[in-house]
Amino acid sequence: MDTTFPDLRQYGGADAFLRECQARIVFDMFTNKWAGLAMGALLGGPRRFNELRRMLDGVTQKMLAQTLRALERDGLVTRTVYPTIPPRVEYELTELGRSASAMLRAIGEWSGEHADEMIAARRAYDERAARPVEPVRA
């Protein structure tokens, strides 16, 4: 089997390229746009649902609810319901969720540093793609 990435199974590690690999669950969660953004929003401390919804511009109520439920299921977020009328619900990162904060911060910093380059690359690509195809001349 020819791979460009080392096979970590021989070292007792994960191989996220394999469909059955449990590490892929984590990879899938962190590559979900709303999960990463929701966790980033929770880095500042507990937040209520509508506060998160206002922070995450463009997220629907349904998508935010699904995302928070998935993060809670994965042990990254806790949901606390306070016995008030109406009930007050807060979401907060767990210790496991906070342990991912360094990675989330690094992704955020990298994104901020390189967004202009990526946008320029997209524009250049789109301009090239819009041109008519010209035959290659030798």
Rank of each mutant, 00 (worst) to 15 (best):
E72P: 01
R47P: 00
G45I: 04
L104R: 09
V59P: 05
M103F: 13
P86A: 06
A38Q: 04
F30Y: 11
L93I: 05
E90C: 02
G40H: 04
R54T: 12
G44E: 12
V89W: 06
G58D: 12
A41V: 09
L68R: 00
A102I: 07
E92N: 12
W110I: 10
L71Y: 02
I85F: 10
T94N: 09
E95A: 15
F30E: 05
N50P: 01
P46A: 13
N50K: 12
I85C: 01
E109Y: 05
R98A: 11
R54W: 06
A35L: 03
K33Q: 12
A100N: 07
Q61N: 14
G58T: 08
L68H: 04
F30K: 00
V89G: 04
L76N: 03
L37Y: 06
I85S: 13
A65S: 15
L52T: 03
S101M: 04
A65H: 14
P86F: 09
A41H: 09
G75T: 07
Y82K: 12
L52M: 10
L64V: 09
E90K: 08
L76I: 04
I85T: 12
L42S: 02
R53P: 02
R53V: 02
Y91K: 01
E51L: 06
R105C: 03
R47H: 07
L96A: 14
V81Y: 00
T31H: 14
G45E: 10
P86S: 00
K62P: 05
P87A: 09
T94K: 07
K62G: 09
L56N: 09
V77A: 02
G58V: 07
A35M: 05
E51W: 05
G44F: 05
D57L: 10
R105D: 01
L56T: 05
G58F: 10
P46T: 03
G58Q: 08
G58R: 03
S111R: 12
K62V: 15
A106P: 04
Q61V: 13
W110T: 13
E72Q: 15
D74Q: 12
R53A: 01
E90Q: 10
L71N: 03
L93D: 01
T84N: 07
L93A: 01
K33C: 05
L96W: 01
T31K: 06
R48K: 13
L37M: 13
A102K: 12
M103Y: 14
R79Q: 14
E90M: 10
Q61P: 05
G40K: 07
E92Y: 00
L64K: 05
V59M: 14
L68Y: 03
T78L: 02
P87L: 05
Y82V: 07
R105I: 10
L42Y: 01
